[in-house]
Amino acid sequence: MKKSERQMMIKQMVLNEEISTQDELLNKLKNKGIDATQATISRDIKELNLVKTPSANGGTKYTIYQNNQLTIEDKLSSTLREVVDNITQVQFMNVVKTIPGNAHVIGALMDDIPFTEVVGTVAGNDTIMIISKNETEATKMYNYLSERMNTTLKS
Results as ranks from 00 to 15, higher is better:
Val14Tyr: 09
Thr139Gln: 12
Gly120Ile: 00
Thr152Phe: 02
Leu80Pro: 06
Lys61Phe: 05
Tyr62Arg: 07
Thr40Asn: 09
Lys46Gly: 00
Lys140Gln: 14
Ile72Gln: 06
Leu145Thr: 01
Tyr142Ser: 05
Asp74Phe: 07
Pro54Cys: 01
Val14Arg: 02
Glu82Val: 01
Met8Asn: 13
Ser20Gly: 13
Thr79Cys: 14
Ala138Ile: 05
Asp44His: 06
Gln66Thr: 09
Leu50Val: 06
Glu117His: 02
Thr136Arg: 04
Glu135Met: 13
Gln66Leu: 14
Ser42Met: 11
Glu47Ala: 09
Thr152Asn: 10
Ala108Cys: 07
Gly58Asp: 04
Ile99Cys: 07
Asn67Pro: 02
Thr98Asp: 02
Leu153Ile: 11
Phe115Leu: 05
Met13Trp: 10
Pro100Asn: 13
Gln7Ala: 04
Gln69Ala: 11
Asn49Pro: 02
Gly120Glu: 14
Leu29Ser: 09
Gly58Glu: 07
Asp111Val: 01
Arg81Glu: 12
Asn94Trp: 01
Lys140Ile: 05
Asp112Ser: 15
Met110Arg: 00
Lys133Trp: 01
Thr121Leu: 03
Gly101Leu: 11
Gly58Leu: 08
Lys46Val: 11
Ile113Gly: 08
Ala123Asp: 10
Gly59Ala: 14
Gly101Glu: 10
Gly33Phe: 03
Glu18Phe: 00
Val119Gln: 14
Val118Ser: 04
Val14Asp: 09
Arg43Tyr: 08
Glu117Lys: 03
Met149Ala: 12
Gly107Asp: 15
Ile10Glu: 13
Lys46Arg: 14
Asn31Val: 02
Ser42Phe: 00
Glu47Ile: 02
Asp85Lys: 12
Gln22His: 06
Thr40Phe: 13
Met13Cys: 01
Glu147Arg: 13
Ile41Ser: 08
Asn150Ile: 01
Met93Arg: 13
Leu25Phe: 04
Ile72Asn: 05
Thr71Gln: 10
Lys61Thr: 02
Leu80Tyr: 05
Lys52His: 14
Thr21Ser: 15
Lys133Asp: 15
Phe92Gly: 03
Val119Gly: 06
Met8His: 07
Asn31Phe: 07
Thr53Phe: 05
Ala138Gly: 04
Thr127His: 10
Lys11Trp: 04
Tyr65Asn: 12
Ala36Thr: 12
Thr40Glu: 14
Gln66Cys: 02
Asn67Gln: 09
Gln7Glu: 15
Gln38Trp: 00
Thr121Lys: 08
Val122Asn: 14
Lys97Tyr: 10
Ile128Lys: 00
Met149Lys: 09
Thr79Asn: 12
Tyr62Gly: 05
Val51Ser: 12
Leu26Asn: 03
Asn67Trp: 04
Gln69Pro: 04
Glu147Pro: 00
Phe115Gly: 02
Thr63Arg: 15
Gly120Asp: 11
Gln38Leu: 15
Glu18Thr: 12
Lys30Leu: 07
Gln12Tyr: 10
Thr121Pro: 07
Glu17Val: 04
Met129Gln: 13
Val105Trp: 01
Glu47Lys: 10
Ser42Glu: 15
Leu145Tyr: 07
Thr139Phe: 11
Lys140Phe: 03
Pro54Leu: 11
Thr63Met: 14
Leu48Lys: 08
Thr79Val: 04
Ile99Phe: 09
Asp35Phe: 12
Asn27Glu: 08
Thr139Tyr: 15
Phe92Ile: 00
Lys140Tyr: 02
Phe115Trp: 09
Ser78Met: 14
Tyr142Ala: 06
Asp111Cys: 03
